[in-house]
Simulated scan of single mutants.
Amino acid sequence: MSLIDTTVHGQVHELRLARAPVNALNPELCAELAHAVRDAAAHGARGIVLAGGPKVFSAGLDVPHLLSLGEDQAALMQAWEAFFHAARALAASPVPVVAAMAGHAPAGGCVLALCCDYRIMADGPYRIGLNETQVGLVAPEGIQALLARVVGPHRAERLLVAGAMPDAAEALRIGLVDELTHIDEVAVRARVWQEELLQLPHMPMLETRAIARREVVAALEPDRIDLPRFVAQWSHPDTQAALRAMLARIGK
């Protein structure tokens, strides 16, 4: 069973994360997402909509899976590499990508959205952000740069250090998302945005976009993620305690 549902709307391909209940990003889902992004462009898509589930776009990395790996550093590296592989596929997509978020987008879900060209979120009590410090993690420098690119360095610092998760209205106000709409209209609005962009002369639009997004691609370069250091920090007692406390809260 595929973990990505693909729907073709003319020149716009909609890729929907389909790993119920909250689209937790395990290696299989990440691998399928990276493949689907490249496959869409290879099969004529001139725009991509990345959608998730109702009320939760993606809850981020599959923490229970990661904790189940214990101290297996090689397996942990492989799992995190799969996630960043998907993020890089979005960032380097040769065609525009819109994140259609009909719900929450914490941590890894927010990273995927930051790799897209445009972010549309459901209007309501939904939250988005890099809450890594809340769960005992340190967002790599490149991920921090992605947030600073859209909200500015000072605001990014405040959000990152606190692990804050602004609600939809605040996310719009600070520029973390570009547009709010009714939860049932998120994917439709994403397609409309793409179709309007596709009315522009194609080559100039794509070349301008490529120049403007160089820093998005650069932020995800391996030396700015420093995955060995990130994975080594995974075993820190503070990190493990915070992650297990989060799972206990969710379990209740």
Rank of each mutant, 00 (worst) to 15 (best):
L137T: 04
E14D: 08
E81I: 08
D72K: 09
D184L: 08
R158H: 15
V63E: 03
P96C: 07
L200E: 13
R214N: 08
H13P: 00
L3S: 10
P237S: 14
C116P: 07
R191D: 02
H236T: 10
R229Y: 07
L220R: 03
V98P: 02
I174R: 01
T7S: 10
E132R: 07
A89N: 05
A34V: 09
D226V: 08
D226T: 09
L90W: 01
P153D: 09
G152S: 08
A164L: 05
R224D: 06
E132D: 14
R149W: 12
R249M: 14
E71Q: 09
E14Q: 14
D5K: 15
V95Q: 01
I250R: 13
R214Y: 07
Q199A: 03
P237Y: 12
K55I: 09
A86C: 12
L137V: 08
R16T: 12
A82S: 13
T7G: 04
E170Q: 14
A156Q: 11
G52S: 13
I174Y: 01
L247Q: 05
D184P: 01
V186W: 01
A20I: 03
V217F: 06
R19E: 09
C116H: 05
E157W: 08
V188P: 00
T239L: 10
V95C: 03
L243M: 14
T208I: 11
I250Y: 08
A86N: 07
L176W: 02
H104L: 11
V161Y: 11
R213Q: 13
P106I: 09
A212P: 06
V150W: 02
Q73C: 03
A245N: 06
I48L: 15
L198K: 02
M121E: 05
A248P: 02
L33Y: 07
L197E: 01
G109F: 02
V138C: 13
R127C: 10
C110G: 02
L147M: 15
P94N: 06
L50N: 00
D39R: 07
Q199W: 00
W234Y: 11
P237A: 15
G129A: 07
A218H: 12
N23R: 04
A36N: 07
V192K: 07
R229G: 09
H35S: 14
R88K: 14
H65I: 02
I128R: 00
I128E: 00
V97W: 00
H35D: 14
G251R: 15
A34S: 15
A145G: 02
T208Q: 14
D238Q: 15
R213L: 13
L247V: 03
L180Q: 05
A31N: 14
G124H: 06
V231Y: 01
